[in-house]
Write a protein that binds this DNA or RNA. Structure first.
Lengths: 115, 115
DNA sequence: TAGAACTACAACCATATGGTTGTAGATAAG
DNA sequence: CTTATCTACAACCATATGGTTGTAGTTCTA
């Protein structure tokens, strides 16, 4: 199967993106690597809360962690962002398809207008 | 302000997209208008459940409804999908920025390597 | 006018989510 | 060795979410 496990993945990706703290973490991680505690210092919440947000991003595949001594460095996975992008692209394609069909109708009828 | 209320909107948009039923409803609505009950017949859940999904999409601004007699026709709002798209674009831009900086480092140091 | 179809919405329930605190294990620093 | 830092994870709590059923209001149809 090539399309079967993607829906769940898209669920996780969009869900991970649906929180401003997580989008901000992701943005920082896209810019450069950060340890979890360094990230935690950026937000008005506990370390554990930020840790959970990172875990959500990680389960979605948006970030991964690598150890450096006692810290975990969070870095982002651009490829997963493109999964979301492709999902949006598919939706926009449907939109264009509809426009084309609408265009065909106009061509056939040669009169329609809906102001 | 021009950027202040967008985060909440993005939250709602991404959250609305984080459910396969809602993505499917949106896809159908992008293709053509559907009444809520017509949509409800497509899924193995109650009418009220589908109604709630449509409400989530509506609050996110991804679909709007218009009356036709006793039915409500659900149609999509492509512009809101582009809000999500722009958010992803911003993230990808950060990624590219990082790549550029990395490139500069390589150019300046002309030796740097961190194994 | 009576009834069927479509919708809106409230009430309810189980589970997920987003936060907290607390405890414990590794690793770095003194 | 001792202590401080960074992380992992469990337990807990309030609220949100996704589903259900039930009731009621409109609008079409017979």
């Amino acid at each position: 199967m090539v399309v079967d496990k993607n829906p769940q993945k898209e669920d996780r990706v969009f869900h991970a993106l649906a929180d401003p703290t997580r989008r901000d973490i992701l943005a920082r991680a896209l810019h450069r690597e950060h340890s979890v505690s360094a990230l935690a210092r950026c937000y008005p919440m506990s370390f554990a809360a930020v840790q959970k947000h990172v875990a959500v991003l990680e389960r979605a595949g948006l970030v991964t962690k690598r150890r450096r001594g006692r810290e975990q460095l969070v870095h982002s996975n651009i490829e997963t962002i493109r999964i979301a992008r492709r999902a949006l692209d598919r939706l926009e394609t449907l939109w264009r398809t509809r426009l084309e069909q609408f265009g065909e109708l106009l061509a056939e009828d040669d009169q329609g207008e809906t102001p």
